[in-house]
Design a protein around this nucleic acid. Structure first.
Length: 267
DNA sequence: CCCGGAACCTGAAGGC
DNA sequence: TGCCTTCAGGTTCCGG
């Protein structure tokens, strides 16, 4: 599932292929993928503009064009594939570039989303802080936790609370910080807040170094998998021994999501 | 504002 | 073999 490290990897690997190029033809196999403007306008308005740069904000990929931004969200099963060697059965949109190459948006479950906007704030304006930005500190995290009664796991998944962390890395960060996923956000001690802050940053940075986690259908633009899932301690590992204390890891359902944790060392 | 649950989607896996 | 249920989980919408 693409979370911050996966989108960061895709951004880094697409950037050299896209910057300076322009879109010569855009087609949609699954028009509902486009959220703004209309699918017809989307294809029409996208052609001819040059790509000036790529950014990531949370789990959103922002492809900057002259005067506009093409924003991509991969949701659960989306992937951006560059010149796929075989026809992709789940291709939902195709972008032909002026150098003849093709970028394919592949998405088995059709949950992905595309926007073409003049101001990126229309799409990413309500996101919480960027966890790897220097301005995000333990103090900022502590301040945002104040008064929040919801389980800490639910807050970490809330993109308005903190951008970019999803189910896998929330579980990994909580395990590293030794905090139970159901603890109330406002109930963390200053020491726990500090541990959680460090854990979030460390888990995300390590995963970026491993070019993302190929737990499900995640693929890099060239079709390669990431290796971050080999470093996972708890995510998707119910029943296996905790790497710290050997207690069998448990799974609980929170907001329709599986949460994996150690019932002994996460308190 | 805060919180929790359902809906959107498809395919893999497991139970009977 | 085949039908049914559950799981996978990012985001948005809705109700309390």
């Amino acid at each position: 599932m693409p979370e911050l490290p996966e989108v960061e990897t895709i951004k880094n690997e697409l950037e050299p292929h896209l910057v300076g190029r322009s879109f010569s033809e855009v087609s949609l196999e699954w028009p509902p993928l486009v959220k703004h403007p209309s699918p017809e306008e989307f294809c029409h308005q996208l052609t001819g503009w040059h790509v000036t740069g790529l950014n990531r904000r949370g789990k959103y990929l922002i492809i900057r064009l002259e005067k506009r931004a093409l924003i991509v969200h991969l949701r659960m099963t989306g992937a951006l594939l560059l010149n796929p060697p075989q026809p992709d059965p789940w291709a939902r949109a195709r972008f032909r570039l002026d150098d003849g190459s093709e970028l394919v948006f592949s998405d088995r479950r059709k949950l992905g989303a595309l926007w073409l906007v003049e101001d990126k704030k229309e799409v990413v304006g309500k996101l919480g802080p960027e966890p790897l930005a220097p301005s995000f500190t333990a103090g900022v995290l502590a301040q945002r936790l104040r008064g929040r009664k919801a389980p800490i796991k639910a807050l970490l998944l809330d993109q308005g609370f903190l951008a970019g962390v999803g189910n896998m890395y929330a579980d990994e960060a909580l395990w590293a910080a030794r905090i139970h996923p159901l603890r109330a956000g406002k109930g963390l001690s200053p020491e726990e807040e500090e541990r959680l802050f460090r854990a979030i940053r460390q888990v995300l940075k390590t995963a970026i170094g491993n070019k993302g986690a190929s737990i499900s259908t995640y693929r890099r633009p060239g079709g390669e998998q990431g290796t971050a899932h080999f470093e996972f301690k708890v995510a998707h590992k119910g029943g296996q021994p905790c790497p710290r204390c050997s207690t069998p890891l448990q799974r609980l359902a929170l907001r329709n999501r599986g949460s994996y944790f150690c019932p002994r060392c996460q308190v």
